[in-house]
Structures are given as C-alpha cells and as structure tokens.
C-alpha cells in the first residue's frame, strides 16, 4: 500500500494572535508555527498501518518549519519526504492546496491519503473531502481507528455523544484523521539526527482550479469576556471570590452535604 500523508504547519493558537495591519489576515511575522495536531495523528496512523501490514509512506509538508517536521516524519518512519513551496505569509487554505495533493497522490500511485480532519486555517473547507471529491475517491472524516482489511479498510469514526460508527471502505480512499489508533510516538534525539540526512524533495503548488471562496473583508477578535466578570489572576483572591459566588448560587460543598 502506498500512503500519502499531509502535514500542515499552522500558527500556534495557544499563542497570541495579532491582526495584520490591513485587517485581512493575522500578523505572521512573530508567530510560532507548529504541526497541525490532527496531521500529527494522520502521520501516526500512516506509520501504524506501515508497521501492521507494510506500506510505503510519503509525507508532504507545507508551511513554515516544513523541513523540521519532515525530518521528524522520516525519524518516525516515513520513507519519502517532500516540502511543498507555500506562498510567503499566506494562510494555508486546504481548498488551495487540494489540487496539488491530488496530483501528488496520482504521481506517487497512492492508495490512501491521510490528513488531519481539519486545521485552524481551513475556513474555506476541509482537505479530505476536497481531495476525495477531486479524485472521486471515497472519503471519511473524523476517524479514530483505521485497520487495513483485505483489499480495503475498516475505519471507525466518532460521532456526537460518544457514538462510534465503523465502516468498511474500498481503496483508493482519503481519510480525515481525528485521532490515531495509538497516541503519536515520541522520537529520540539520535533518531532525529539520523533522519536529518534524509533528502527532502521539493515541489511547487499547482493552481487550485477553484474560484476564490470569498473575500475576507475584515478579521476581528471576538468581543472579549462577553458579559462575564474578570476575577483577576491572584489565586488566593479568586478562591475567596469563588467561595462567595458558589454560596450565593447555592453550590457550596456544605450545601450539598446537607441535602
């Protein structure tokens, strides 16, 4: 089986996001970029499939820090790594890169494409269904278990309220991975150093083939705090206030004990 994994570098959203001066993007200059968490799980799922039944894994990365992440992918077991040349300072739109991913999949005779179920920058649509529809391959998003099963796959998908649905599907296919069957593995420094010798291929982005989805008129930060009250950052003060707030709302520990 030939597996293609897509790794997208996205701004660390635990960090502070500043709007760009024109108000149509975020200021990317001082941002930390990190691998999209769901893509990390997609990579893990690919390596798990390789270990379980043999596969060739090609990892494609895009965005700032792609090289570093590709070395990590190689250290974890990817056989071939390719950096896609992103436009400078542009957000990584899954709608825009889908055509390139589809072309790469054809080029590498991929049977299976794995990517994260979403990214924080896919406001114009998600990668797995775009690529699936463009190739006319079946796609399932939100997977938390993937097992190769004869000529196809057995895939479990998460739905709401803890409900899990298992499907059988034919290959070739595209999966939007939510959680890998096992947590992403840790790679040692020595493995990373060894993998740093893996040659990184380069490829350019192809035209998306789509019309632009929308014109972003303005980005803004949501109104802060809503109507909530800020209790500050002093734990002792906060605890004092909370004791009162809980009591006023009939939620004290004692109130409960007496019931």
């Amino acid at each position: 089986m030939n597996i293609l994994v897509v790794l997208r570098m996205i701004p660390d959203s635990a960090g502070e996001l500043q709007l760009a001066e024109d108000g149509r993007g975020i200021d990317r200059e001082w941002l930390d970029f990190q691998l999209n968490d769901f893509d990390d799980h997609a990579l893990e799922e690919a390596i798990l499939l390789k270990e379980a039944g043999g596969a060739t894994v090609t990892a494609v990365a895009i965005g700032e820090g792609a090289n570093r992440v590709l070395q990590m992918a190689a250290a974890r077991g990817a056989d071939e790594v390719i950096a896609l040349q992103a436009e400078d300072d542009a957000m990584i739109s899954s709608r825009t890169i889908a055509a390139t991913i589809a072309a790469t999949a054809r080029d590498k005779s991929a049977d299976l494409i794995l990517c994260g179920v979403q990214s924080t920058e896919d406001v114009f649509g998600q990668l797995a269904p775009y690529v699936g529809a463009m190739l006319d391959w079946p796609h399932v998003s939100g997977t938390n278990r993937v097992v190769a099963d004869g000529a196809g796959l057995r895939v479990t998908q998460e739905r709401g309220a803890g409900v899990a649905v298992t499907y059988e599907m034919t290959l070739p296919a595209v999966l939007g991975v939510q959680t890998a069957s096992k947590a992403p593995r840790y790679v040692s420094g020595s493995k990373l150093r060894e993998a740093s010798k893996t040659p990184i291929g380069r490829a350019a982005l192809e035209p998306s083939g789509f019309e632009r989805s929308a014109e972003i008129r303005e980005l803004r930060l949501p109104a802060q705090g809503g109507s909530g009250e800020d209790l500050g950052n002093d734990a002792e003060n906060v605890a004092d206030r909370l004791v009162t707030i809980l009591a006023v709302n009939g939620l004290t520990a004692n109130g409960l004990a007496r019931k």
């Binding site: 949501p222 109104a223 802060q224 909530g228 009250e229 209790l231 909370l242």
Partner: peptide
Amino acid sequence: FNVAHYGA
C-alpha cells in the same frame, strides 16, 4: 472567557 460568567 467569551462564555464564562466568571473568569480567572
């Protein structure tokens, strides 16, 4: 904090 009634 956008949905919280109290935030610390």
